[in-house]
Amino acid sequence: MDADIMENIFLLVLVTLLSVVQNAFFALKVEKECKSQNTKAAAFERLSCAKRNCMDTYPTFLAIMWCAGLCLSQAPAAFAGAVYLFARQKYFVGYMGQTCQSTPGYLFGKRMLSFLFLMCVVGIVNFLLGQYCGSDYKEYIQTITKTLSPLLLIP
Rank of each mutant, 00 (worst) to 15 (best):
G105M: 05
Y106M: 14
Y106H: 13
L107E: 10
L107Y: 10
L107A: 12
G109L: 07
G109S: 03
K110Q: 12
K110T: 13
K110S: 13
K110Y: 06
R111Q: 08
R111K: 15
R111P: 03
M112G: 01
M112I: 02
L113H: 06
S114D: 07
S114V: 06
F115E: 01
F115L: 08
F115T: 05
L116W: 03
L116Y: 02
L116V: 01
F117H: 02
F117V: 01
L118D: 00
M119T: 02
M119C: 12
C120S: 10
C120F: 03
V121M: 11
V121A: 11
V121G: 00
V121L: 15
I124C: 12
V125H: 04
V125Q: 02
V125C: 09
V125I: 15
N126E: 04
N126A: 02
F127V: 05
F127Y: 11
F127P: 00
L128M: 12
L128T: 10
L129S: 13
G130D: 10
G130P: 00
G130I: 00
Q131R: 12
Q131L: 14
Y132A: 05
Y132V: 09
C133A: 15
G134S: 07
S135N: 06
S135E: 05
S135D: 02
S135H: 09
S135T: 11
D136Q: 06
D136E: 08
E139G: 02
E139P: 00
E139F: 06
I141V: 15
I141G: 00
I141D: 01
I141T: 03
T143I: 07
T143G: 12
T143W: 09
I144M: 12
I144Y: 09
T145I: 13
T145L: 07
T145W: 15
K146D: 11
L148N: 09
L148F: 15
L148I: 13
L148A: 15
P150W: 09
P150K: 07
P150I: 08
P150E: 06
L152D: 01
L152F: 07
